[in-house]
Amino acid sequence: MALTTKYKGLIDIANSSGIQDLQIAEQVGVLHIRGTAPSADVKNKLWDVYNQLDPNFLSGDVVMNVDVSTAISGSQVRVITQNSNLNIRKGPGTDQPIVGKAAKDEIITLISRANDQWWLVRTNDGEEGYCYAQYLEPIS
Protein backbone atom coordinates (compact mmCIF):
# COMPACT_ATOMS: atom_id res chain seq x y z
CA MET A 1 0.00 0.00 0.00
CA ALA A 2 1.30 3.43 -0.87
CA LEU A 3 2.38 5.45 2.15
CA THR A 4 0.18 8.35 1.11
CA THR A 5 -2.80 5.95 1.31
CA LYS A 6 -1.76 4.35 4.59
CA TYR A 7 -1.22 7.76 6.19
CA LYS A 8 -4.04 9.61 4.42
CA GLY A 9 -5.63 10.46 7.79
CA LEU A 10 -2.40 12.01 9.02
CA ILE A 11 -1.81 13.92 5.78
CA ASP A 12 -5.40 15.26 5.82
CA ILE A 13 -5.02 16.50 9.41
CA ALA A 14 -1.65 18.06 8.59
CA ASN A 15 -3.11 19.84 5.55
CA SER A 16 -6.09 21.21 7.46
CA SER A 17 -4.37 22.31 10.69
CA GLY A 18 -2.78 25.56 9.55
CA ILE A 19 0.76 24.23 9.62
CA GLN A 20 3.28 26.68 8.19
CA ASP A 21 5.85 25.57 5.62
CA LEU A 22 4.24 22.15 5.53
CA GLN A 23 6.27 19.66 3.52
CA ILE A 24 5.12 16.11 2.91
CA ALA A 25 7.15 13.89 0.61
CA GLU A 26 7.93 10.24 0.23
CA GLN A 27 11.63 9.53 -0.11
CA VAL A 28 13.07 6.03 -0.38
CA GLY A 29 10.11 4.32 1.26
CA VAL A 30 9.73 6.84 4.07
CA LEU A 31 7.09 9.55 4.33
CA HIS A 32 8.76 12.72 5.63
CA ILE A 33 6.58 15.36 7.26
CA ARG A 34 7.96 18.77 8.19
CA GLY A 35 6.41 22.02 9.27
CA THR A 36 5.59 24.40 12.09
CA ALA A 37 2.34 23.81 13.96
CA PRO A 38 0.40 26.82 15.32
CA SER A 39 0.24 25.26 18.80
CA ALA A 40 1.43 22.33 20.89
CA ASP A 41 -2.13 20.96 20.74
CA VAL A 42 -1.95 20.65 16.96
CA LYS A 43 1.42 18.93 17.18
CA ASN A 44 0.07 16.49 19.78
CA LYS A 45 -2.98 15.81 17.62
CA LEU A 46 -0.73 14.87 14.70
CA TRP A 47 1.22 12.45 16.88
CA ASP A 48 -2.02 10.90 18.17
CA VAL A 49 -3.23 10.27 14.63
CA TYR A 50 0.17 8.90 13.59
CA ASN A 51 0.11 6.53 16.59
CA GLN A 52 -3.36 5.32 15.62
CA LEU A 53 -2.30 4.55 12.06
CA ASP A 54 0.97 2.91 13.08
CA PRO A 55 0.72 1.71 16.70
CA ASN A 56 3.92 2.44 18.65
CA PHE A 57 5.53 3.75 15.44
CA LEU A 58 7.10 0.36 14.74
CA SER A 59 6.81 0.41 10.92
CA GLY A 60 9.51 3.02 10.57
CA ASP A 61 7.98 4.43 7.39
CA VAL A 62 7.35 7.97 8.67
CA VAL A 63 9.71 10.63 9.98
CA MET A 64 7.64 13.49 11.39
CA ASN A 65 9.50 16.59 12.54
CA VAL A 66 6.91 19.21 13.41
CA ASP A 67 7.88 22.28 15.36
CA VAL A 68 5.58 24.64 17.29
CA SER A 69 5.46 28.28 16.21
CA THR A 70 4.73 29.66 19.70
CA ALA A 71 8.15 28.45 20.89
CA ILE A 72 9.75 31.87 20.58
CA SER A 73 12.21 33.76 22.75
CA GLY A 74 10.56 35.07 25.91
CA SER A 75 7.61 32.67 25.76
CA GLN A 76 6.56 30.34 28.55
CA VAL A 77 7.11 26.61 28.25
CA ARG A 78 5.91 23.72 30.38
CA VAL A 79 8.18 20.91 31.59
CA ILE A 80 6.70 17.67 30.22
CA THR A 81 8.95 15.01 31.70
CA GLN A 82 7.14 11.81 32.64
CA ASN A 83 7.63 12.17 36.39
CA SER A 84 11.21 13.22 37.08
CA ASN A 85 12.79 16.64 37.26
CA LEU A 86 14.30 18.09 34.11
CA ASN A 87 18.03 18.75 34.18
CA ILE A 88 19.21 22.24 33.38
CA ARG A 89 22.75 22.12 32.05
CA LYS A 90 25.57 24.58 31.63
CA GLY A 91 25.80 23.98 27.89
CA PRO A 92 23.85 22.22 25.11
CA GLY A 93 24.72 18.52 25.58
CA THR A 94 24.25 15.69 28.06
CA ASP A 95 28.00 15.81 28.69
CA GLN A 96 27.56 19.28 30.21
CA PRO A 97 27.39 19.73 34.01
CA ILE A 98 23.94 20.06 35.60
CA VAL A 99 23.39 23.56 36.98
CA GLY A 100 19.76 23.24 38.06
CA LYS A 101 16.49 21.33 37.91
CA ALA A 102 12.96 22.12 36.78
CA ALA A 103 10.06 20.11 38.17
CA LYS A 104 7.54 18.25 36.01
CA ASP A 105 4.72 20.63 34.97
CA GLU A 106 6.75 23.65 36.08
CA ILE A 107 6.38 26.63 33.74
CA ILE A 108 9.65 28.28 32.80
CA THR A 109 10.82 30.91 30.35
CA LEU A 110 12.35 30.10 26.98
CA ILE A 111 15.27 32.52 26.49
CA SER A 112 16.45 31.22 23.13
CA ARG A 113 16.68 28.11 21.02
CA ALA A 114 20.35 27.16 20.89
CA ASN A 115 19.50 24.49 18.32
CA ASP A 116 16.64 22.08 17.56
CA GLN A 117 17.65 19.85 20.46
CA TRP A 118 18.69 22.27 23.19
CA TRP A 119 16.88 25.36 24.42
CA LEU A 120 18.24 27.98 26.80
CA VAL A 121 15.74 28.54 29.63
CA ARG A 122 15.31 30.40 32.91
CA THR A 123 13.33 29.11 35.89
CA ASN A 124 11.29 31.37 38.16
CA ASP A 125 14.10 31.01 40.70
CA GLY A 126 16.45 32.59 38.18
CA GLU A 127 18.34 29.42 37.31
CA GLU A 128 19.56 29.61 33.73
CA GLY A 129 20.82 26.88 31.44
CA TYR A 130 20.06 24.43 28.67
CA CYS A 131 17.25 21.85 28.62
CA TYR A 132 16.44 19.12 26.14
CA ALA A 133 13.74 20.60 23.88
CA GLN A 134 11.63 17.43 23.70
CA TYR A 135 10.75 17.90 27.37
CA LEU A 136 9.51 21.46 26.89
CA GLU A 137 6.09 22.24 25.51
CA PRO A 138 5.16 25.76 24.38
CA ILE A 139 2.07 27.19 26.03
CA SER A 140 -0.15 28.81 23.45
Partner: peptide
Protein backbone atom coordinates in the same frame (compact mmCIF):
# COMPACT_ATOMS: atom_id res chain seq x y z
CA UNK B 1 9.64 12.33 18.63
CA UNK B 2 13.17 12.88 19.88
CA UNK B 3 14.65 10.75 17.10
CA UNK B 4 12.42 12.15 14.33
CA UNK B 5 13.43 15.67 15.43
CA UNK B 6 16.95 14.85 14.22
CA UNK B 7 15.58 14.50 10.63
CA UNK B 8 17.15 11.12 9.87
CA UNK B 9 16.45 9.12 6.74
CA UNK B 10 14.50 6.57 8.80
CA UNK B 11 13.92 5.47 12.38
CA UNK B 12 13.76 1.68 12.52
CA UNK B 13 12.11 0.46 15.74
CA UNK B 14 10.79 -2.80 14.24
CA UNK B 15 12.60 -5.01 16.78
CA UNK B 16 12.04 -2.71 19.75
Amino acid sequence: QSLDALSPKRVDMSTL
